[in-house]
Design a protein around this nucleic acid. Structure first.
Lengths: 215, 215
DNA sequence: ATCCATATACTCGTAAACGGATATACGATT
DNA sequence: AATCGTATATCCGTTTACGAGTATATGGAT
């Protein structure tokens, strides 16, 4: 055996849904939506059906029965296979125990800060800080509501995780913006110079061998 | 005009590379590697060439010249168009000013914690903490080296950002693991019960309308 | 009684991502 | 002199991801 693991987290969601009980794809989607799981897992129908197909091909799920109500489109109810149950546990365990490098768009943008002039960057960072503030307030409100409604924390950890990440980011962004504004960033002069050079269409000199992150 | 923006951050990297000077794709890749940008932007050749093709189709970059040295494969040097230059500035600005929801695998896994028994989860979280520790130490070492070598911070902010995210995550993971271990998590009993039910193949009752994160 | 928005349930075509495969050059090694 | 690993440079076929489209059913408002 030892089949290759799917890479799309949506596949994990499918396996986890079927771990509860057999379902047809559309039902999985509705369930995730009603439980708010679509906030932590990107869900769209196009991908859902391809993912289900893939899981079936790999023998991790299997069609249980094919129902038809009235003249609505046919629907296929899937169930977990033994291999699928094992895969779910394994995969989930590994995702929790072992961090994987994920590439965020903001990180990408940060690697090219030099393209913009420092003052502009400071402004943009402050704007981000504002947006983050709003998001943080909103999620805080939602989480407080779940406490009131006595929804167990087990079902809201993703939200807490996300909240703490955003809070950390806000603090960092604010700090960086401040350093630029107050001229405390060590390389500010170089930055301005560099930017002027590039804007003038001149070839620039760049310190080769920058950050070497070994994953 | 107002062309659609590409979604792959690699496209941003291509634009940013060409902002410096005209280059052929392979050269962009080598440059990113030598500058360690491949740590913040997922880079593989297959995608690079498709991205370049797409950018050309959208008129954001244009072939400058086609060189050929000896009998090596032909190489096409691309340059930024005016539209490309504008796109780069716009895109970069927006990426900095406006946070976008990104889905991480860990977050996905957290939404299905209930599938595993609590004690198991505590162990896995501790393991993650260990891995994070290692990563953090490594990146710290690298960043300290860049300070010694007097590499301007402008070129290492991505690294600092990443480091702070990991540190925040480590603290959170450790905290959660502790709460589970010490039985402080409010819903621990429910969790065990739920898990027993599922393991026994019984249908479970789930509090509908859980976390509603509005993006 | 009819209309319209929403829910149900999927299908299909296109676009993007990726992992090799390919083919040459070059320097070091046996 | 032949070999072997590595760098140069891109291409190609397959797999995935996605958005838009389709068609029926249902419940409430007009």
């Amino acid at each position: 055996m030892a089949r290759k693991r799917p890479s799309n987290p949506l596949a994990l969601a499918v396996l986890a849904s079927l771990y509860e009980r057999p379902m047809h794809p559309y039902e999985m989607a509705s369930m995730m939506r009603s439980r708010g799981k679509d906030a932590s897992i990107k869900l769209n129908y196009g991908s859902l059906y391809t993912v289900v197909e893939t899981l079936e091909r790999r023998g991790l799920i299997a069609p249980h029965e094919t129902q038809r109500e009235g003249r609505r489109p046919e629907r296929t109810v899937y169930g977990l296979t033994d291999a699928g149950r094992i895969m779910l546990i394994d995969w989930l365990s590994e995702l929790i125990s072992t961090p994987v490098k994920e590439y965020t768009q903001f990180e990408a943008a940060l690697s090219f800060l030099g393209v913009l002039p420092p003052d502009e960057v400071a402004t943009l960072l402050r704007e981000r800080e504002g947006h983050l503030d709003v998001e943080i307030r909103q999620l805080r409100a939602v989480l407080e509501m779940t406490v009131e409604r006595q929804i167990p924390r087990l079902f809201t950890v993703e939200g807490e995780y996300w909240l703490m990440l955003r809070e950390a980011e806000r603090a960092w962004v604010s700090q960086l913006a401040g350093e630029i504004e107050r001229g405390e960033l060590a390389s500010l002069d170089l930055w301005r110079e560099l930017h002027a050079q590039i804007a003038a269409g001149q070839p620039i000199s760049y310190p080769e061998g920058g950050v070497i992150e070994d994953d």
